[in-house]
Amino acid sequence: MKKLIVILAAGATLALPVATAVYSAAHSNPFSAHIAARQGQMNIQSFNIGVLGGMARGNTEYDADAAQTAADNLAALAMMDGRALWPEGSDNAALGDATRALPAIWEDMGAFGAEWQAYGEAVSGMQEAAGGGLEALQAAMGPLGSSCGSCHEDFRQSNN
């Protein structure tokens, strides 16, 4: 009996690393580069929106050149054709915590594309306003924020 327990224990010990390797192979993320690029794009957008928002909120002093540069950066990013960053299967139902992209994106690519289009229009509005004084910049923040929110409402997992 004691021998049997020793054999079972040894077997379990040997099997564990194998099982772990099989498990992680099945759960490895083939889209980690895509997701890193998506998140990088979001972070650069957020950084530039932060420059504009900091001024709009009065946290930093209004600087027309810096505001225009940030808005131009957003416009340049919005011009990028990012379709290759969103392959089918790179959603949080398939990949868990690696991404907050909801499967809804691939269920309605047309609506997702329309959200990007609307974001591009809000960015154009900001590009026209940012260098034209603090009040114009402040007025353009709301439409920009609601275009971000409109997409995140349906297509990004809430983080709470």
Binding site: G142, L144, G145, C148, G149, H152, S158
Partner: peptide, 24 residues
Amino acid sequence: ANYLNDGFTPNFDSAGGEMVEVIA
């Protein structure tokens, strides 16, 4: 107060989920 107006967190991430409607 700013989040409830422009929908951005202090780090300039955007609101999502039901709060988007609330901010509207």
